[in-house]
């Protein structure tokens, strides 16, 4: 028996919004420690890794490890039927071929349930090595989304250059060149507005804008985003999900031809 309950459907809606542009379907691996999802996008350029800890749920029970392959388009249709403040419960029997998603209004006067067929997905699981990153940047998630959106107008690629002075995002194309520099913030009143750079050595990497823009669909989940970079390895873009877990996106760099 698997059962996981969250106080607000809005969190699940935001999580789905953060992955459904990259993935058509994905396997949710459930165990007593929580729910994990790892999947590459169709073109195998990026990888999404979602962790939801069992202690972040209002109720969590998972008697046996369970892998639930879900069509994310179908899940989006179901979640559209929930009000943001509804409780949401996911339930499945062991070895089931369906999952039940139930919404309850705060006053318990409306209860709806949706049974969704599960899929057998033959997904490769990749081992992600521990990396000592050269640069780790923490910045407001909205600012990162704005920069990715703005620079995508100028080029398919963005160059991220991080030094101890700050982080520079550049794009160059037919129109010309765009550069956006962010300095590390001195003192800020609000932690969520800070730009913090931890640098071991400077790094310059090139990434495809369309993937960065897809990652920023996670912006409603978190006030801050963390970018971890190291020469010649994938960028890690991480959004914390308060009290529940995190979503990490790995993006393979572009290299000189």
């Amino acid at each position: 028996m698997f059962e996981a309950r969250l106080g607000q459907a809005t969190i699940l809606k935001k999580i789905l919004d953060a992955i459904k542009d990259l993935l058509n379907e994905a396997t949710f691996d459930c165990s007593d420690s929580g729910i994990q999802l790892q999947a590459m996008d169709n073109s195998h350029v990026s990888l999404v890794s979602l962790t939801l800890r069992s202690d972040g749920f209002d109720k969590f029970r998972c008697d046996r490890n369970l892998s639930m392959g879900m069509n994310l388009g179908s899940m989006a249709k179901i979640l559209k039927c929930a009000n943001n403040e509804d409780n949401v419960t996911m339930k499945a029997q062991d070895n089931a071929d369906t999952v039940t998603i139930m919404f309850e209004s705060a006053n318990q006067e409306k209860v709806s349930d949706y049974e969704m067929k599960l899929m057998n997905l033959d997904q490769e699981h990749l081992g992600i090595p521990e990396t000592d990153f050269s640069c780790v940047v923490r910045m407001p998630a909205m600012e990162f989304a704005r920069i990715c959106r703005d620079l995508a107008q100028f080029s398919e690629s963005v160059v991220i250059c991080c030094t101890k002075e700050g982080v520079k995002f550049s794009a160059s194309g037919d129109v010309g060149t765009a550069n956006i520099k962010l300095a590390q913030t001195g003192s800020v009143d609000k932690e969520e507005e800070a730009v913090i750079i931890e640098m071991q050595e400077p790094v310059t990497l090139t990434f495809a804008c369309r993937y960065l823009n897809a990652f920023t669909k996670a912006t409603p989940l978190s006030t801050q985003v963390q970018l971890s970079m190291c020469a010649d390895v994938p960028l890690v873009v991480e959004y914390a999900i308060k009290d529940l877990g995190h979503i990490r996106y790995y993006l393979a760099p572009k290299i000189e031809d």
Binding site: M40, H44, V45, S46, L47, E124, H125, L126, G127, I128, P129, S157, T206, A208, V233, P234, Y250, L251, A252, P253, K254, I255, E256, D257
Partner: peptide
């Protein structure tokens, strides 16, 4: 010009 690498070339299959 730059070439897009694949994520699976960095991470090993488990």
């Amino acid at each position: 010009s730059s070439k897009q690498t694949s994520i699976s070339s960095f991470f090993k299959k488990e």
